[in-house]
Design a protein around this nucleic acid. Structure first.
Lengths: 209, 209
DNA sequence: TAAACACCCCCATGTTTATGGGATTGAATC
DNA sequence: GATTCAATCCCATAAACATGGGGGTGTTTA
């Protein structure tokens, strides 16, 4: 038996999902609330839902803030977002807040059911659009390094800077003179149009090198 | 009709997928290779597969390096990884290299088919285990800020450092004296156990603050 | 073969940081 | 009502950094 809760301010949607799940074998959906504020006092450590279906656009506290609180208090609950929003910001904020699934509101009831089953078996149900956006997040992190204007040695120097080493220590690490380190750093500043190692470190860690 | 290619060094697996797809309505799988090296010379801009199923553990060039090359030359091809590996590093490297899907080798043929259909319709097929690991990547980015030892003001100073500002400019931005900036930075260094702004910037951008 | 570039080293000068001291105020905790 | 603590300022010094010059050596390439 999978115990499910739902937080959704649209009564019709909420009841429709709840009724549907309660008609399925192996499902029981007794937690049903229209806001985070009304849900929280009703969560007791003894009897918790395994899965919480969460709307994002709620009256009062947002679904994202709500998920942060819930995950902090009851990390064992699996949260699955159920929202109309498909913009990357909402998606990433939700995942960072602790959601392990993200279904758009146009998801058929049957797929909500299989999504929940997937969730409790260790998967992460996501609407196709959502999964694609999540994947694209990584793709943007990968397209680089072809255009980096820095030479191999200069990149090594940058690594030293990011590690917080002084010129002297970078020189030791690369077994070159501190003067050579200085020379390279001048080149790096010129090529990157920056004027201090702080900016180099920032650019580097943002993947802009 | 969906045109599919496959790069897989295990002849049996490759042929089995190829034959299966060719038996399906709307599928044609004519590109079939056992290494990146043998695939590349056979990709011509005029006739490209829409989808390439890629093994990771290939003889010669790795699937990940191969995907980088393919995506650079033919960004319109959708790549879906087909591998036994389910460790986070392989997953993230693949996604960064341009994969838009990631199926484990235990995926049934029918699901490979529906995965490809999902792919061309704008989704991202992922085995449940894989999707979960991708989602967990974001979750780890979210659990923070409760334990940050820095005061509100100190965090503002850190932002200034990350932006590459000098003490003077930070002082101006926050309309306080440069001496106060110095004082705060001393506190920050003490609290974070670091000895230079480089380390502060690194920690900050890594989400460790 | 000359230009271009990566890489190596040295010097000088001024600025910025790191680190130690110290002092005062106000808000919060106890 | 004492203590704690963030926040504000001041001073001093040594170390690290930024920036400008000046030399060289190799390798690649047009």
């Amino acid at each position: 038996m999978i115990f499910v809760g739902i937080v959704e301010d649209d009564d019709q949607i909420r009841k429709s999902i709840q009724d549907f799940l309660n008609r399925q074998n192996g499902f029981q959906c007794n937690w049903s609330f229209n806001s985070i504020e009304s849900l929280l006092p009703n969560l007791k450590a003894e009897v918790l839902p395994q899965v919480l279906i969460m709307d994002l656009g709620l009256p009062g506290m947002s679904g994202i803030d709500g998920m942060k609180i819930i995950k902090e208090r009851y990390p064992q609950i699996d949260l699955v977002v159920f929202s109309v929003y498909n913009d990357p910001q909402k998606i990433f904020d939700s995942l960072c807040a602790g959601a392990t699934g993200y279904l758009l509101k146009n998801t058929p009831l049957e797929e909500i059911k299989s999504g929940i089953e997937l969730l409790v078996s260790g998967g992460s149900p996501m609407s196709p659009q959502i999964a694609r956006k999540v994947v694209e997040f990584f793709a943007s992190r990968g397209k680089r390094e072809i255009t980096s204007p820095l030479s191999a040695k200069e990149k090594e120097i940058v690594v030293g800077l990011v590690d917080g080493l002084s010129y002297k220590l970078i020189a030791d690490r690369l077994t070159i003179s501190i003067e050579t380190v200085r020379f390279h750093i001048k080149s790096i500043y010129r090529k990157l149009h920056v004027h201090g190692k702080a900016e180099v470190i920032s650019k580097s860690l943002r993947g802009e090198i």
